[in-house]
Simulated scan of single mutants.
Amino acid sequence: MSEVMAAIVCSDQKYWRDSPAMPNFKNEHRLAWDDLRLVLAIAREGSLIAAAERLGTSHPTVFRRARDLEHRLGVRLFERARRGYTLTAAGDEIHAVALKMEQEVEALEQRLAGRDLKPAGPIRLTTVDTLICGPLVPLLARFRARHPEIVLDVTVAGALSNLSRRDADIALRAGGEPPEALIGRKLARIAVAIYRGRDAAPVSPSELDKAHWVMPDDTLSHLASVRWLEAKRLDRRAVLRANSLLTLAQAARNGIGLAILPCYLADADPMLARVCAPMSELGSDLWLLTQPELSKVTRIRAFMDALYEDIQPLKALFEGKAAQAAGGLTT
């Protein structure tokens, strides 16, 4: 029997024969669910500070609980490395059991959640800042007016939240085909184009290599626009880099340089003007994603259906056709 399993099953009759200095273990010394959550958090985050944030507590509290857990079990669970904390062999055993228990509890919660009868309760939505500052919030307001018993918990993040770990219930994201473990609906095609400040000097598409640029930094290196700029060697002309497309839009508005921006954000801004037509090679799809189990929940289904319907009249905006129809395409 392993060290960890011996600690788990210990009682008045079973104790650590190989560690005579350790006291006998009673029922209250067995692993509790909070102990398992602690191990999961440290394993996932790799640091006590980040684990404390995930658990909603303080760094000293996590340190004390980790130390007490090791003392209580009589075995070392964590190793401090240069890049943070890793699990020992004993810690790995606990982690495997904790992960399985977490998955089973979450599956149960999802099955129970699917039994609700009316759209009510919380919905955790994760999306990006350009959608929040663009067309999304009016759609959320319309949804709330229809379903006042639903509370929206919106997280703005650059990286895709882990829906399988229930970091969020629904994700509204741009990208390619979603992972097989998720289901969703394709809402629209997202067009992007090059923009300058309305009061900046006009730039011809043939003079892009002579202009200044503002571009995403390394945290957004996954964007197709970054790869395009690097392939054209226009990244050498960058005079400002930022980790937010909103910052790049603001920089372009003030004439710092050209920026590649989604049309749904920039076409609605009177202080920005297009330099060229939408660039089809840089377009992506807008997806609304959730887990298969959650798609059966009344409030989740109501939100996804409503957003799908409300996005349809905005397709021209997302596809970069709204400005052209209004005569707003300028160079």
Rank of each mutant, 00 (worst) to 15 (best):
Leu77Gly: 00
Thr86Phe: 03
Trp287Phe: 09
Arg227Met: 09
Asn162Lys: 11
Glu28Gly: 02
Leu160Asn: 09
Ala7Arg: 10
Gly158Lys: 01
Leu160Gly: 07
Lys14Pro: 03
Ala201Phe: 00
Ala43Pro: 00
Ala181Tyr: 11
Ala251Ile: 00
Ala251Ser: 15
Leu248Ser: 15
Ala107His: 02
Arg196Leu: 11
Ile123Pro: 05
Pro179Phe: 00
Val192Met: 12
Thr155Leu: 11
Tyr308Gly: 08
Leu208Asp: 12
Ser221Asn: 10
Leu36Cys: 15
Met279Ile: 15
Arg82Thr: 14
Trp16Cys: 15
Val39Phe: 07
Arg237Gln: 15
Lys296Tyr: 10
Pro20Val: 09
Ala252Gln: 08
Ala188Pro: 01
Ala259Phe: 01
Leu234Phe: 07
Arg301Cys: 13
Ser206Gly: 06
Glu79Asn: 12
Arg185Cys: 05
Arg165Gly: 00
Trp213Phe: 07
Ala171His: 02
Ile183Pro: 00
Ser161Phe: 04
Leu261Ser: 13
Leu38Arg: 01
Ala211Cys: 11
Ala266Gln: 03
Arg274Leu: 07
Pro60Ile: 04
Gly328Thr: 06
Arg146Cys: 13
Gly46Asp: 10
Arg111Lys: 07
Gly283Gln: 14
Pro262Ala: 00
Ser206Lys: 15
Val203Tyr: 06
Ala323Phe: 01
His29Ile: 01
Gly121Asn: 08
Ser295Tyr: 06
Leu282His: 13
His212Asp: 14
Glu177Thr: 15
Glu309Val: 07
Ile190Trp: 03
Ala259Thr: 06
Arg227Val: 03
Arg144Leu: 11
Gly74Ser: 05
Leu31Lys: 00
Gly84Ala: 03
